[in-house]
Nucleic acid binder design. Structure first.
Length: 863
RNA sequence: GCCCGGGUGGCGGAAUUGGUAGACGCACCAGACUUAAAAUCUGGCGACCGAAUAGGUCGUGCCGGUUCGAUUCCGGCCCCGGGCACCA
C-alpha cells in the first residue's frame, strides 16, 4: 500500500483505498475449479425499493462474513448478488411520478448497487442479474412452456379480490378493511379464469424432504409442514335421492361415522348454489354470508349459522335418512366443501347441533374413565366404539379400518390423503411483470408461445409518456397476426413475482448462458451451501423455490433434490420508539428529536421532546419503519463511522437469528474498538518475523499465557463462525484477546515476536467481519502473504497448562478456590479439599459423606 | 384455540456435554489529565446485610421435582414474540 497512513484511523481513506484495490483486480470473481472445494453462499436478493435499510445490511453482512471465512479456508467461494426487480412498487411509482417502471427500477438498482459496494461485500459482480431483464425472464417463459407441456400448468376459474375502480385483481395484502388500498373502493369477490401451477403434485415430496433438511431451523420446517397440511382420512359418499346424486365428504375420523346426524355444506357448494337459484330466502342468506367473509373474521367470535335444505342424505352404513344443512362454518376450499357432522365428537358440529336442536349421538367412549359431559361439550379424543352395532367395543383405530372396508365394499368410500396446500395462482393483472407466454386463437383454443418467439417482452414505448396501463390495454401487445393470416390474442396477465425468485439461485451459476436456461456449471455449484434471509419468507418463497428445484430436477436441469443445504434466518432490526397520544391518534417521534434522562443506575426514566421540552411516552422496541419514525439510515452511519464499524456492530450486537436492537451508543463502542485496534497494530510496525512461523521453545510463563490466549481464541472463533454461526461471541472472544494483548508487557525480543503474532492473529480472525481495516493494517505491517490467504489453525500444544484453578465447593456451593498442578489423582484432590482452610471451617466436625471430583475443575465436599 | 421460539444486571447479550451465573460491549459512577468541557486513561458496577477493599444471605419469569450440584433435565403455571387458524 503506497499511502502513508496517519497514526489515526481514517475509515474513509482506508475503505476507499482497499475497495479500489478489490475492484481493480476483480478479486471476488470466481469460476468453476474442480481442484478446489466449492462453497456457494447466497443471501436473498433485494427488491430495488430505493435505498438499503438496516435489514439488508444485516443480511448481507452475515453472508459476507461466512463467504470471507470460507475463502480464507481455501474454498472456491461463490457469492453473487442481484435484483428481484419486477413488482408492484415500481408500477405505483411510475404512475405517481410519471416515469416508466423500468426507469424507476434501474435508477434504484444503480443507487443500491453503490451502497452495497460501499459496504465492501465480496460479491462476484459479473454475475449480477436483474429479473426484469429479458435475458433472465426469457428462460422463465421457456420453463413455463415446459411445465405447460408436462401438464403442470392449468387455467381454471377461482375467486379473487377485484377492485372495480382500478379494474384489477388485488392481492389479499392489498385489501384493507374490505377496500382497495389505492382506490378506496369496496373490493368485490369475482370469479375469473386464472393460471395455476400444480404444486400440489409435489406435496408429498415437499413434505417428506423436510426431514432431510438437517441444517434448516425447526421452526421453518414446522411452518412448511403446517402449510402443506397433510392429513389422512376417508372420502365417502352420501346418496341424495332428490338430486339423483350424492354429496362427497372427507373425514379423518371414520370411526365416528355412526354418530353422523346431519351433513353440512359450505355456502359456495355447487349443490347449494343450484338450490339457491330457485330459493330467494336462501340466496339472500348466502349473499349476507359472503359480505361478512369468514376468512377475515375471528372464527371464535363468529356465530355459527345455517339453513336446512329440502333434501335428505342416506347414511352409507345405517341407510337412515339424515338432514342436509348449509352452514357458514364450512370452508369451501378445503376437502370437498362439505362435512359429515358428528356433534358428539366435534366441537363445531356440537355447537351447531345445540343451536338448531339437532340430534347428538355418542359413539365414542373414553378409554380410561374420565369425565366427559356431552351436555357441556363434544368429546373429540379417540376411544372405544358404542352405539355402532357390530363395531361396539372396538378401538377407534380398529373401527376406522373396519368402516373403511365396509365403505370400499359398497363403493361408497375410499382412502384419501388431503392437503391444505393449494395450487399456486401465478397470474397477475399487472404491467410490471414477466408476460405469460400464451396465445388464444379465435376459436378460443390455447397455445403456448413457440420457443423461437421468446422472450415476449413488455411494451416499453410508454417510456415517453410514463404512465402505464394494464397490459390488456395495449392493443399492439395483445393483437397478434399469424403467418397464416389468422389473428390471435396474447395473454395479458404477468407472472407472480415469486416466479422469478424461485430459480435465480441456479441462474447465478451460469449467468451468461444465452443458449440455455441452465448449463453444466450448475452441477459444480449447486446446491447452495448457506442461504441467508428473513424469516418472513419461511413459507412462500422458500416453498416455491424448493418446488421449482424439484421440477427443474425432473426436467434434468439440476441434480440435487433440495436447493438450499443450510438455511439461516436472520432476525429483524429494531429500535426504541417515542410517541404522544393526541386524542385517539398516536404521533411518533424519531429518537433524534427526543432527549432522555437517566436515573442513578443508568436506566432511562424520562424522555422529552427537544423542541418543546414536554414529556413523550417511551414506547416499545419495534421493527425499524417509516411510520414509527425509528429507522436508521445506513448511509449516514457509513459516512460517520465507516462500513467496518457498521458491519462490526451489526454482527456484535446479537446472534444472527435473534432480533437486533439498534443502539447508537453501542455503535460508538464498536468504532472505539477499531480505533484502538488501529493504535495497537501501529505499535507493531517494524517488528521482526511478523506473519512468519516461529520457534516456540523455552517460553516463560507470561509468554506461554499470551500464546495460549491466541490459540484458545483461534479455536473458539473458528467454531463460532463455522459451526455455531454465532458471530457475536466470536467478536467478544477477539475483543478479549485484544484486551489481553494490550496489557502484555514487552520486556525482550521474544516477547516482541509473540506480541506481533497475537496482533496478526487478531487481524486475521477479524478479517471476515471488518475486511477493510484489517487488510489495510496487514499491508501496513508489510507482510508478504495476503491476509485472506489462509485461516489460522490452533496449535493444541499451546492450549496445555501446568497450573489450573480448581473450585472448592461444600454441598454444591462455591466456598473457595485454589491453584493446583494439572491432572492430579483423586487422593491428591481429596487432600487439597480437606486441607483448605475455608473448606475445613465449613466442614467443622461434620461427617464427610462423599467427595465429588471433576478433574482440573471442581471438588465438591458433601457433608 | 393450535404449533413454534423466548423470559438471565440499568441495557444488548454470554455460560457449547448438568460443574465458579453475569464473558464481551453499552450506559452509569468515581478518580487522573484539563483553566473548563469533550476526548482519553485508571478503577468500580446483580440485590440485600455490613464501616469494610472482612464476611455472609439471596439471585437466571413463578411453583414443585430429580441431583452432591440445575440458567441447563422433568412436571405444572404465568408472561412476551412469531406463525397458522371453523382445515372436518
Amino acid at each position: 500500500m503506497k499511502t502513508d497512513f496517519v497514526a489515526e484511523y481514517n475509515h474513509g481513506l482506508v475503505e476507499e483505498e482497499i475497495q479500489k484495490n478489490w475492484n481493480s483486480t476483480s478479486k471476488f470473481s470466481v469460476k468453476e475449479d474442480k481442484s478446489k472445494k466449492k462453497f456457494y453462499c447466497l443471501s436473498m436478493f433485494p427488491y430495488p425499493s430505493g435505498r438499503l435499510h438496516m435489514g439488508h445490511v444485516r443480511n448481507y453482512t452475515i453472508g459476507d462474513v461466512i463467504s470471507r471465512l470460507k475463502r480464507m479456508q481455501g474454498f472456491n467461494v461463490l457469492q453473487p448478488m442481484g435484483w428481484d426487480s419486477f413488482g408492484l412498487p415500481a408500477e405505483n411509482a411510475a404512475i405517481q411520478n410519471n416515469v416508466h417502471p423500468a426507469t424507476w427500477t434501474n435508477e434504484n438498482i444503480d443507487y443500491m448497487r453503490d451502497q452495497l459496494k460501499r459496504l465492501g461485500f465480496a460479491y462476484d459482480w459479473k454475475r449480477e442479474l436483474s429479473t426484469c431483464d429479458s435475458s433472465y425472464f426469457r428462460w422463465e417463459q421457456w420453463f413455463f412452456s415446459k411445465l405447460y407441456k408436462n401438464g403442470l400448468v392449468e387455467k381454471k376459474e377461482s375467486e379473487v379480490n377485484w377492485d372495480p375502480v382500478d379494474k384489477t385483481v388485488l392481492a389479499n395484502e392489498q385489501v384493507i378493511e374490505g377496500r382497495g388500498w389505492r382506490s378506496g373502493a369496496l373490493v368485490e369477490k369475482k370469479k375469473i379464469p386464472q393460471w395455476y401451477v400444480k404444486i400440489t403434485k409435489y406435496a408429498d415430496e415437499l413434505l417428506n424432504n423436510l426431514d432431510k433438511l438437517d441444517d434448516w431451523p425447526e421452526s421453518v420446517k414446522t411452518m412448511q409442514r403446517n402449510w402443506i397440511g397433510r392429513s389422512e382420512g376417508v372420502l365417502l359418499k352420501f346418496n341424495v335421492h332428490e338430486l339423483e346424486g350424492f354429496v362427497e365428504v372427507f373425514t379423518t375420523r371414520p370411526d365416528t361415522l355412526l354418530g353422523v346426524t346431519f351433513l353440512a355444506l359450505s355456502p359456495e357448494h355447487p349443490i347449494v348454489e343450484k338450490i339457491a337459484r330457485d330459493d330467494n330466502a336462501l340466496s339472500l342468506k348466502l349473499k349476507f354470508w359472503k359480505k361478512n367473509d369468514l376468512r377475515e373474521t375471528d372464527p371464535n367470535s363468529l356465530e355459527k349459522e345455517g339453513i336446512k335444505l329440502d333434501i335428505k342424505a342416506i347414511h352409507p352404513i345405517s341407510g337412515k335418512e339424515i338432514e342436509v344443512w348449509v352452514a357458514n362454518f364450512v370452508v369451501s376450499t378445503y376437502g370437498t366443501g362439505a362435512v359429515m357432522s358428528v356433534p358428539a365428537h366435534d366441537q363445531r358440529d356440537w355447537e351447531f347441533a345445540k343451536k338448531y336442536k339437532l340430534p347428538i349421538v355418542e359413539v365414542i367412549e373414553p378409554i380410561s374413565p374420565q369425565f366427559c359431559d356431552l351436555e357441556e361439550s363434544a368429546f373429540e379424543q379417540k376411544g372405544i366404539l358404542k352405539n355402532s352395532g357390530t363395531l361396539d367395543g372396538l378401538s377407534s383405530d380398529e373401527a376406522s379400518k373396519q368402516i373403511l372396508k365396509l365403505l370400499e365394499r359398497s363403493g361408497l368410500g375410499e382412502k384419501k390423503v388431503q392437503y391444505k396446500l393449494r395450487d399456486w395462482l401465478i397470474s397477475r393483472q399487472r404491467f410490471w411483470g414477466c408476460p405469460i407466454p400464451i396465445l388464444y386463437s379465435k376459436d378460443g383454443s390455447i397455445q403456448i408461445e413457440s420457443e423461437k418467439n421468446l422472450p415476449i417482452t413488455l411494451p416499453i414505448k410508454e417510456a415517453i409518456s410514463g404512465r402505464v396501463k394494464p397490459l390488456a390495454d395495449y392493443d399492439e401487445f395483445k393483437n397478434i397476426s399469424n403467418a397464416d393470416g389468422t389473428t390471435s390474442l396474447r395473454e395479458t396477465d404477468t407472472f407472480d413475482t415469486f416466479f422469478e425468485s424461485s430459480w435465480y439461485y441456479a441462474r447465478y451459476c451460469c449467468f451468461d448462458s444465452t443458449e440455455q436456461m441452465l448449463d453444466e456449471r450448475v452441477d459444480y455449484w449447486l446446491p447452495v451451501d448457506v442461504y441467508i434471509g428473513g424469516i418472513e419468507h419461511a413459507v412462500l418463497h422458500l416453498l416455491y423455490a424448493r418446488f421449482f428445484n424439484k421440477v427443474m430436477r425432473d426436467e434434468g436441469l439440476v441434480v440435487p433434490d433440495e436447493p438450499f443445504k443450510k438455511l439461516l434466518t436472520q432476525g429483524m432490526v429494531c429500535k426504541e420508539t417515542y410517541y404522544r397520544k393526541v386524542g385517539s391518534k398516536i404521533e411518533y417521534f424519531s429518537p433524534e428529536e427526543v432527549e432522555t434522562e437517566f436515573d442513578e443506575k443508568g436506566a432511562v426514566f424520562k424522555a422529552y421532546l427537544k423542541k418543546d421540552k414536554q414529556p413523550v411516552v417511551i414506547g416499545s422496541i419495534e421493527k425499524m419503519s417509516k411510520s414509527k419514525k425509528n429507522g436508521v439510515d445506513p448511509e449516514g452511519l457509513i459516512k460517520n463511522y465507516g462500513a467496518d464499524t457498521v458491519r462490526l456492530y451489526t454482527m456484535f450486537a446479537a446472534p444472527p437469528e435473534q432480533m437486533l436492537e439498534w443502539s447508537d451508543n453501542a455503535v460508538e463502542g464498536s468504532f472505539r474498538f477499531l480505533r484502538n485496534l488501529w493504535k495497537l497494530t501501529s505499535s507493531v510496525i517494524g517488528f521482526e518475523k511478523l506473519g512468519q512461523p516461529l520457534n516456540y521453545d523455552d517460553l516463560n510463563e507470561s509468554q506461554r499465557d499470551l500464546r495460549r490466549k491466541v490459540h484458545q481464541t483461534i479455536k473458539k472463533v473458528t467454531d463460532d463462525y463455522e459451526r455455531r454461526y454465532k458471530f457475536n461471541t466470536a467478536i467478544a472472544a477477539i475483543m478479549e484477546l485484544y484486551n489481553f494483548t494490550a496489557r502484555f508487557n514487552i520486556k525482550n525480543e521474544k516477547d516482541k515476536i509473540l506480541f506481533g503474532e497475537a496482533v496478526c492473529t487478531t487481524l486475521q480472525l477479524l478479517h471476515p467481519v471488518v475486511p477493510h481495516i484489517t487488510e489495510a493494517l496487514w499491508l501496513k505491517l508489510d507482510i508478504a502473504k495476503p491476509i485472506d490467504d489462509s485461516w489460522p489453525v490452533f496449535d493444541p500444544s499451546a492450549l496445555t497448562k501446568d497450573v489450573v484453578e480448581i473450585v472448592l465447593q461444600v454441598n454444591g456451593k462455591k466456598r473457595s478456590s485454589i491453584r493446583t498442578k494439572v491432572d492430579l489423582n483423586n487422593e491428591e484432590y481429596e487432600k487439597i479439599a480437606k486441607s483448605d482452610e475455608k473448606i475445613s471451617k465449613y466442614i467443622g466436625d461434620q461427617e464427610i459423606k462423599k467427595i465429588i471430583i471433576v478433574p482440573n475443575k471442581l471438588i465438591n465436599v458433601v457433608i
